[in-house]
Write a protein that binds this DNA or RNA. Structure first.
Lengths: 188, 188, 188, 188
DNA sequence: CATGAATGAGTGTTCATTCAT
DNA sequence: AATGAATGAACACTCATTCAT
């Protein structure tokens, strides 16, 4: 029974990577990430086989956190629009509360280090939200468009809204509503 | 800033960069771009001071081409919605006709090599389109939102629509319409 | 130098190192050797202070086994040439029976990790064979050459013969004889 | 017409590698070789694609020099034994005159970075010497052994002789003769 | 102006060795 | 004693940029 691989350390690396990606981008040296995490450069590779592996896992971690935050306190008994707005509000709040996580995720999304398998897994994580979206557009103008198109639209509106909220955080709540209304106009 | 002798060579580099960025991403070596352009690696720096400079100029070049294509044959005499749709259609067609340019531009947009000044200039280039957008939303639900938010929304809908069109190019025309309708629902 | 508890484990490491050296060379990671030996990487250093130490001990181990095999069933009562040939035959047989040991040893011989002291000890181990050699050349053309030169010649002929035998193992016995005759012609 | 790739520099790298290999072995850092050659570390890779490439070329270079030195002033009109001895003497002299080259070559020969193709080319370079060897053993006791075996024997005797000569260079000439006689006894 | 050799800082990853458990 | 995580120096190779020709 030697020192067991510490979950704390894994988390520290992930958190460090998040911070460093925000400031230096995806080309940030692994050594910088290790230092930020308070470990030796070589130790990083005890937890993640390669830099790309680290990025893929971070992508998933962030997406999972985002999705689970979005689904928190999900109200089963209310009507669809309100359900969706509940999720939307949680989603936006996460982005505003953890701007670094959101920006890091945004970088990871466009990285070509993220494998198709990882992206696929990422989509599965968002399944609940996607399902809400599906139900919302079921009778709307986009009822015949492919899901991926609708999902892309939803994501873009979400991203734009987040930016808006972060920039003018005093009125964040209002902006969240405006973004959701725009989305709803697209879908339903 | 005396522009160098051969405009041909400058264009060749820009075109080469476009192609290389699509296949290798923004981390593509300058030497690869030079080779693709049919010149020696050192010569690239006669035309562009640094790699970042090349990218900034390419960003502007592509944006300008996109914008001018969008404004082609602009119909002054028709009503606003139709004017906007004319522009939208040109815009979408450009993206479908020159997928490499569009994809390169998409990469450049998220690059942190692109300076704020360049982004600002890029927005100016889109001024005509922005103005249309402004007029369209003047009486709509987003009439009180900041222009940047509205612009971000428009861009996202455009990007999603382009992807959609490229993926299913047989029905490109129909998809273009669907995207525009979605945009219009947001704005007006 | 208290030898560690388990001689089994020590032997396992030595045997693993032999195998790994053959496939990966002397730059084989200690971790690979440990895994092959079925122990944890850190445990290797309980038995051998350093990688170089392991190699030095392995060198000696292999040389000792080689020498003792060569001297097996030594016939005291026959004449010199036959005595020498008996040893030669055992020697060659060992090489053919344990090709991995021989190849590992060949690599170790040229390694600069093997210290002069170890080499010296290795020569002592071969003392019996060297003595036979000395007696064989006592009246021959090399009677006035330094022992080290003669030993080097003998070793080279042996090495060449071993290669020859391994390559064409069907006629190994014949090749062994041819090699010995060549050696004898040099010495006596 | 830029700076042309300089043959001097190529030679300097090769010479530097020779020296460094002797002192630090084949694991010598490329940076050390570059520094010894008086160039920047990156420049080494202008002349040799990889470290392995450098080693392969050096192997060939050294072998070629050795072979051409050995054939210098080849006497066509004398009998076989004398021809062979002439070559042998040149060969031994080269080894004694350039001990670093010889030792570097000895290391390269056992390196697994040297490709089969390179080894093949190396053998071609030695073709003339091999031919002499073939003629010498044509009627001798090894007339039925494979050439590779005979060549291995010859090389080993040569190596042993060189060591001997270097160690006791005062009597180098005598030792060269002794070695040759031993070889001749094997072959003819 | 064009060329491509020269430069040298920068980087992901490996690995012998140490040490906490 | 055994384990395997932790360490950090080391290293081959890349690449934007400079500069001699």
């Amino acid at each position: 029974m030697p020192r067991p691989k510490s979950d704390d350390k894994r988390s520290a690396i992930l958190a460090a990577a998040t911070r460093i990606i925000v400031t230096k981008g995806l080309s940030a040296p692994t050594m910088g990430i290790a230092k930020e995490a308070g470990i030796a450069n070589g130790s990083l590779f005890t937890y993640f086989e390669t830099k790309a592996d680290l990025f893929n896992q971070l992508y998933l971690e962030l997406k999972a956190e985002m999705a689970s935050t979005a689904m928190k306190d999900f109200p089963d008994q209310v009507e669809l629009r309100e359900q969706f707005f509940h999720v939307w509000r949680n989603w936006m709040n996460w982005a505003v509360s953890f701007p670094e996580k959101r920006r890091a995720l945004a970088q990871l999304v466009v990285s070509d280090e993220i494998t198709p398998a990882t992206r696929e897994a990422g989509h599965k994580i968002m399944a609940k939200i996607a399902e809400l979206m599906e139900r919302s557009r079921a009778d709307g103008p986009l009822r015949n468009s492919p899901r991926s198109f609708v999902a892309a639209l939803m994501n873009s509106v979400a991203e734009a809204t987040m930016d808006y909220m972060v920039q003018d955080s005093k009125n964040a709540k209002k902006h969240s509503r405006v973004g959701f209304d725009a989305l709803w106009r697209i879908l339903a």
